[in-house]
């Protein structure tokens, strides 16, 4: 089996150079899409026929919740790659994804609670969707705590990889909880195949906001991973050269 291309792709130096080139563009696209989507949703989209204006929280809630899941998937894949092929960059990526995912997961939970109060009549209900989402937040926190509990980098990455892969079973549970059980949380409005049950005047700003959040997530992930690469590789000659060259304000 040939895995050599894998190792070439995973060189921290190569990553640092490539990510430096697309950093500005990702950031600009993220800012433009997020601002456009949120302002559109907040100011221009019509109110919902049942919920009135409170539904506008959806333009933050849905992107945050979807990112919480996608970031976990990416984290688990990175952990698995590091677990099997011992690729340092994948472990660094997994380490960087945990706080990002945790922040979006808490945002989804909190905005959900704020939305739940005026629509359902309760901040929190122990239904399957909300509970499994809370478990996801605990998983993220557990991953961060586990990593900081080890002094050995290698041990930490192995332990985190195993926890991340075990926690992977929670993702389909979150996704399909609204179909498998009777929950207070409604079913999915966005569908990849078939018609979304949302009017185009609301769907468009939501999709723009989703794209913005995804770009933003990629942007801050690159920022984090670049800092992590410098931190872990500071003994190498290329990082030393980089630090001598760069002014302190460079990202």
């Amino acid at each position: 089996m040939k895995w050599t291309f894998f190792h070439r792709l995973s060189s921290p130096k190569w990553f640092y150079e490539i990510s430096g080139r697309c950093l500005v563009w990702t950031g600009a696209a993220a800012l433009a899409c997020t601002l456009c989507g949120l302002l559109w949703g907040l100011l221009f989209a019509p109110p919902d026929y049942q919920q009135g204006n409170s539904y506008r929280i959806i333009f933050i809630h849905v992107p945050a919740a979807s990112l919480a899941l996608v970031v976990y998937l990416a984290l688990a894949v990175m952990s698995a790659i590091n677990f099997v092929w011992k690729i340092k960059l994948a472990d660094m990526a997994a380490a960087c994804l945990a706080p990002i995912g945790a922040s979006f997961c808490s945002l989804a939970l909190v905005t959900g609670a704020i939305w739940g109060k005026p629509t359902w009549g309760a901040w929190w209900v122990w239904d399957a969707r909300l509970t499994s989402m809370l478990i996801l937040l605990f998983l993220y926190c557990g991953l961060m705590a586990l990593r900081s509990a080890f002094t050995s980098q290698d041990m930490a990455s192995r332990a985190c990889a195993i926890l991340a892969m075990v926690g992977l079973v929670n993702i389909p549970v979150i996704k399909f909880s609204v179909e498998w059980w009777s929950t207070l949380h409604q079913g999915a409005s966005l569908r990849i195949v078939g018609q979304s049950s949302m009017d185009p005047s609301m769907l468009k700003p939501l999709l723009v906001s989703l794209a913005g959040f995804y770009m933003f997530c990629l942007f801050v992930f690159l920022l984090r991973l670049r800092a992590e690469v410098v931190w872990r590789e500071w003994r190498t000659s290329w990082v030393r050269a980089l630090l001598e060259r760069s002014a302190p304000h460079v990202l």
């Binding site: 019509p46 109110p47 919902d48 026929y49 049942q50 919920q51 539904y55 959806i58 629509t119 359902w120 009549g121 309760a122 209900v125 207070l184 409604q186 079913g187 999915a188 409005s189 049950s197 949302m198 009017d199 005047s201 609301m202």
Partner: peptide, 15 residues
């Protein structure tokens, strides 16, 4: 306690 459940349909009042 009474909680309202809403479905996954979103549309403007005019629609």
């Amino acid at each position: 306690e009474v909680l309202a459940k809403h479905d996954e349909t979103y549309m403007p009042p005019e629609v």
